[in-house]
Design a protein around this nucleic acid. Structure first.
Lengths: 118, 118
DNA sequence: TCGTATTGCTACGAATATCGTAGCGTACGG
DNA sequence: CCGTACGCTACGATATTCGTAGCAATACGA
């Protein structure tokens, strides 16, 4: 199959090219997988079902979504709740550091149009 | 060719599945491309040459690196300096929101080993 | 002027990741 | 039963990334 959860981290050993094994690169490696951040973001305000999550992530394919969920669960950022998936304590902790990006993005995005042509 | 800079954003229109067009999703879409965050991170403490960046990014292939650089430049986060590449003002601004992740990662990574087997 | 080193970058086939769609098995309500 | 929603798997088609080779331009010393 193609949607196996790729190993995450093992800091100090090369993962997806993060040869340095620096913690931040391990984290970037994880977060830069498709929809990883989107899942954290969408779980931030409460637990959601698999299919709900799917919609909110631009109809991401179930295989990738499931893969991301496995990975995020394997590193203890996400867990299963009786009513779907939810952030763990450290998941919420990480989200707090992601949250400011939301405000930043809202100021940044308009400046994109500025340089877009007409 | 394969290493064309993919369009970034156009908030409101679907990009790589970010159907919502929410600014944060536009940003996530950009940042989750391979090495995007790594480039920002490695440029944070001064300008670097193309090849220097390459090394620091786990020997990322030149094609991807160049593609990322094009994209990051096209959205005004990175610019060419006489001695390589450097963050722009808003690039540094964004980095400030990324930086706390470094500390977080250093506390988080050890907890990964804990649950890794024996 | 001739190496030769370094730099920025392109080319391109092979390897991976992601998408899109179909569909299975379970649980629940009517 | 029947319909619906759920979590999730299967799998071929696409898209992205890797790995390696190599070229043009610049800089440096011999």
């Amino acid at each position: 199959m193609n949607n196996e959860a790729r190993p995450v981290a093992a800091p100090g050993s090369p993962v997806r090219g993060s040869r340095s094994g620096q913690p931040i690169m391990v984290l970037f490696d994880l977060l830069s997988r498709r929809w990883a951040m989107g899942v954290l973001w969408n779980l931030s305000d409460g637990s959601r079902t698999f299919r709900d999550l799917q919609e909110r992530c631009g109809s991401a394919s179930p295989s990738v979504l499931n893969t991301r969920l496995k990975e995020l669960r394997s590193v203890g950022l996400v867990e299963k709740a009786h009513d779907g998936y939810a952030l763990t304590v450290s998941g919420r902790d990480l989200f707090q550091h992601l949250e400011p990006l939301g405000d930043w993005a809202m100021e940044w995005v308009p400046s994109l149009d500025a340089g877009r042509d007409s």
